[in-house]
Design a binder for these strands. Structure first.
Lengths: 140, 140
DNA sequence: TCTTGACTTAAAGTGCACTCGAAGGTGTTT
DNA sequence: AAACACCTTCGAGTGCACTTTAAGTCAAGA
């Protein structure tokens, strides 16, 4: 029972990347398809998982260049495991810092929304500025 | 006691935007500086607060175009408060969705790091693939 | 046979948000 | 007098990650 083979068009829909992007990624060395006797690309279940994984990496903010480095390291074998691990750890730390910052911005945004609501409901004086309103949260 | 006035160079350092960017934002209608008798821009404490706020908005992922729309609405006065509130709410919802997605990607990333650690410590069989390793978390 | 979908290389285009430089001008400070 | 910080317009450059086009070839299926 041979594994199912997907040609680029089908695979494209499966993973949510355009055929352009798949070929572009192949140029970049990120997703290397196998070829049939006619030189036509085909992808397997393994490739689905691999694309899934690199999309997770991209989703955490990893740039193509770093992704390329990761892939190169992977190709070098087990001797690069520590380096790859550290790379992922740094990516993770960066992403967590991004989230923290985003949440900080969101907090102000939320307060502005509350402030608008207060204005509309007249529970905040017409004259009170958002800046003054914000002050009351400063110690929290 | 007149309020302190900042010229663009000083203000730039204060808010962390280059003078190029400040002029660019002014072209875009986002931060309008006042001018002295010679046509030289100056900024006040109010402008510091305003820039702070728009950086919060940008920080949550609001695009320049939307930011411009927000500023236009603001200039129209209180009649646009509901629309502005809704805009911020949508921005907030979007940002929260982004965070949720980011966290989902991070979870996989974390597991990959754990998997690397397991490989190094030999608590995971050399032969076990990450995909198989991941399966055990599928019901959580 | 014709359409469909694949293949190639190389180059150009897109969108966003800046970022910079040229060229020429004013006003303040050393 | 020179240096410095500011002013203007406007067009070009940057970085990233695609996205599209052009122009031509090839093979399987209806």
């Amino acid at each position: 029972m041979a594994e199912k083979r997907y040609r680029i068009g089908e695979f494209s829909k499966l993973v949510g990347l355009s055929t352009y992007t798949l070929r572009y990624y192949e140029d970049q060395g990120l997703i290397i398809a196998q070829r049939d006797g006619n030189g036509v690309r085909y992808y397997t279940e393994d490739d689905i998982r691999w694309v899934g994984f690199i999309l997770h990496l991209k989703g955490t903010g990893l740039r193509l260049n770093d992704l390329k480095r990761y892939v190169r390291l992977r190709a070098e074998g087990d001797s690069t495991i520590a380096e790859r691990r550290d790379m992922l750890q740094k990516t993770k730390d960066d992403a967590e810092a991004d989230i923290a910052e985003l949440q900080m911005h969101l907090k102000v945004l939320s307060r502005k929304i509350d402030w608008y609501d207060g204005k509309v409901a007249h529970t905040i004086a017409d004259s009170e500025s958002f800046h003054d309103y914000l002050q009351q949260f400063n110690d929290k």
